[in-house]
Each structure stands twice: as structure tokens, then as C-alpha cells.
């Protein structure tokens, strides 16, 4: 049997091609300079090897011109590479507005995935091809890193905060998902798969029809938690409760008791659930107890999905929350 010896990873996302172009350019550049230096060393070593007769060389031949040349040329080249890499990075860091949202929580030693429509997965992530997918990441314990080599994307999942990455898969298949940040005993076993599917297949999978009962959406699950945890006793749909109403809060600017204001993004909502005393809405008493330890990161995400679904005029599609944030911030509506 001839063993497998791949030398180059599969290209399965829209960013894989552009990233690889820079890679090949740098290989060509590196090969050129390595061969130049090695070639000169070998040529000089042969031509000027130690012999009885000694060649005299003029002192400091062309020194200044050479020094300037080999300082300026590498600098110019490196700025070209810098610019190229920076442009790629900005593309990689900026999810398109129409991205499908999914959530991944790292936990020693597995990935827990959630889809807004309610399907949950462990160590597998189903995604459609031809559509950008934004993965929001966090961790239950230590730092993990979400790495899909075939898509050329990687992002650390940091406990206590949300990070994200995005990709657009280009061909159906199963791709390695690795944890790339050392996280303890079974770090190397914290691996999974991203399964890219045709959009129709993905929709069928997402609605869970192959399993019978349709899954409960994240917002719906969040609503149940909201009731079960007793949140609803203080946070009512109008401002009559002991806590502020949460209708239209997500993405809006919130006035705080210290006079400043904050945009109620998912990071703020998460903090308000787990460390409510940190930044209290103006006009309310700091009486909310912490839910740290009572809810897991996956449940926090469900609560946030529910809060984001609380709109007074019909329901807002969740994909638009990101855009709404900036608009809401300028409007200055308080929660």
C-alpha cells in the first residue's frame, strides 16, 4: 500500500484561494532569496576557497550603495506583503451582512454547536455551501481555538467573551475541525467535522425532518429559560417590573446608572446575566442576582437569542440585529 502523502490542503471556502495565492507568492519569494543567498555562498566558497595565493579586495567596495540597496529592497517587498496580508485579514475579520448565524461553545474536550432554528450538535457543524456562515464562539472553561484548515479560518474561543469567524463553503464534503489552542489532557482529541451540504439538503437537515419532530428554536428555548429561571417576574414587557423591560433592548443604546451608555450587544447582554451588578441600567436598583453557575454558555446564548427576538412590532429576523445595532445606537433609545 502506498501511504497517503498530501502536500497541500483542500480548498473548500471562498477565502482558501486568496489565502493560498499569498502563500504561493511568499514561497516564490522565499525560494528566490534562499537560493540567492545559498547560491552566493556556494559560489564564493568555491571561487574563493583557501589557496596559496591570496586575492586582495578593495576595502569597503561599493559599501554604501549595497547597504542602501539591501535595506530598501526588502523594506519595499515587505510592505507589499504587509498590505496584501492586511487586506486578506480585514476580509477574514468582516462577516458579510447576510451571514447565517451559528454558535459554538468550546468545553474540554468538545465543541457544542447551536443553530438558531434549534438544532444542536456535538463536534459536528452542518453548514450550507454558497452562503456565508458566521460562527460566534465562546468557551465554558479555558481558551480553545476553532480551526478549519480547508477553509483557512481560525479563531480562539475565549472564556468570558464572544469572538467570531466566518467562512463560505464552496463544495460539499466533510472537513477537519481542530482545536488549535492547547487546552489540556485531550486537546488532540478535541476534533470534529464541518459538514458542508447543498442548501436544500441543509434546510432539510436543519428542520430536523429526517428525525421526525422539529427542533425548538434557540429563541424559543431561551423563552422557556426566561420563565423557568424567573427572569420574567422582574423583566416584563412593559416598564412596570423591578427590572427594565427587555423589548427592543438588543442592539440599542442603554443608559447606565453611572451616566454613561452602552450598546446592548451580545457581550453586554451576557455580562448582564452573569454579572448584573457590573453595569446597571439607569433608574433601576442593583438588585438582580447573578446567574453565574446557574446557566451554561449555551443557555446564555439561548437567552440572548430570546432577548434579541423581543421586538414590539412583529419579530425582527435575527440576521439584521448587527445592522440594527449602529442605527439603534444613534437613535439613543433607552431600555
Amino acid at each position: 500500500m502506498i501511504p497517503e502523502l498530501p502536500l497541500f490542503p483542500e480548498q473548500a471556502s471562498t477565502m482558501a484561494g486568496p489565502v493560498d495565492q499569498l502563500y504561493f507568492f511568499l514561497i516564490a519569494l522565499s525560494a528566490f532569496f534562499s537560493l540567492l543567498v545559498a547560491g552566493l555562498i556556494i559560489a564564493f566558497s568555491i571561487r574563493y576557497r583557501r589557496r596559496r595565493v591570496r586575492l586582495e579586495r578593495p576595502e569597503d567596495f561599493g559599501m554604501l550603495q549595497l547597504e542602501i540597496g539591501w535595506t530598501v529592497l526588502p523594506f519595499v517587498l515587505s510592505m507589499v506583503i504587509f498590505y496584501w496580508g492586511a487586506m486578506l485579514f480585514i476580509d477574514l475579520r468582516r462577516p458579510p451582512a447576510d451571514s447565517l448565524e451559528v454558535f459554538a461553545v468550546g468545553k474540554r474536550w468538545m465543541w457544542k454547536m447551536q443553530h438558531l432554528e434549534g438544532r444542536r450538535e456535538i463536534n459536528e457543524l452542518h453548514v450550507p455551501i454558497g452562503q456565508p456562515v458566521k460562527v460566534t464562539l465562546t468557551s465554558e472553561d479555558v481558551i480553545h481555538s476553532f480551526f478549519v484548515p480547508a477553509f483557512r479560518v481560525k479563531q480562539d474561543a475565549v472564556p468570558g467573551r464572544y469572538t467570531d469567524l466566518w467562512f463560505e463553503a464552496t463544495k460539499p464534503g466533510r472537513y477537519h475541525l481542530f482545536c488549535a489552542e492547547f487546552c489540556g489532557s485531550q486537546h488532540a482529541r478535541m476534533i470534529g467535522q464541518v459538514i458542508a451540504m447543498e442548501p436544500a439538503d441543509f434546510q432539510a437537515w436543519l428542520s430536523g425532518t429526517e428525525r421526525g419532530a422539529a427542533p425548538v428554536s434557540m429563541a424559543e428555548a431561551g423563552k422557556r429559560l426566561f420563565t423557568d429561571l424567573g427572569c420574567v417576574t422582574c423583566h416584563q414587557t412593559d416598564d412596570s417590573g423591578r427590572g427594565p423591560s427587555l423589548v427592543n433592548v438588543a442592539g440599542s443604546a442603554v443608559e447606565l446608572s453611572d451616566g454613561s451608555s452602552v450598546v446592548a450587544d451580545s457581550a453586554y447582554l451576557r455580562e448582564s446575566i452573569l454579572r448584573p451588578q457590573q453595569r446597571v441600567t439607569a433608574g433601576y436598583q442593583p438588585i438582580m442576582p447573578t446567574y453565574q453557575g446557574l446557566v451554561g454558555e449555551d443557555q446564555v446564548l439561548e437567552l440572548i437569542a430570546y432577548i434579541e427576538s423581543l421586538r414590539d412590532r412583529g419579530s425582527t429576523p435575527l440576521g439584521e440585529v448587527t445592522q440594527r445595532k449602529t442605527e439603534a445606537a444613534t437613535e439613543g433609545t433607552a431600555g
Binding site: 511568499l26 492586511a86 486578506l88 480551526f147 483557512r152
Partner: peptide, 26 residues
């Protein structure tokens, strides 16, 4: 000189933001 040259040049791969995302921690 030879090995340092290769080490230095491959450092450029890692300093390039968009490429580092893929090769970081590998």
C-alpha cells in the same frame, strides 16, 4: 546563515495577517 535565512523568510508568512490566521498554532 542558510537555516536562519529560511527561518527568517518563513517568519514573513507568519507576520502576514491573512495567512497567519491559517498557520497560527500549527
Amino acid at each position: 546563515i542558510g537555516l536562519f535565512t529560511i527561518g527568517g523568510l518563513t517568519g514573513l508568512f507568519l507576520a502576514s495577517l491573512g495567512l497567519d490566521v491559517h498557520v497560527h498554532d500549527t
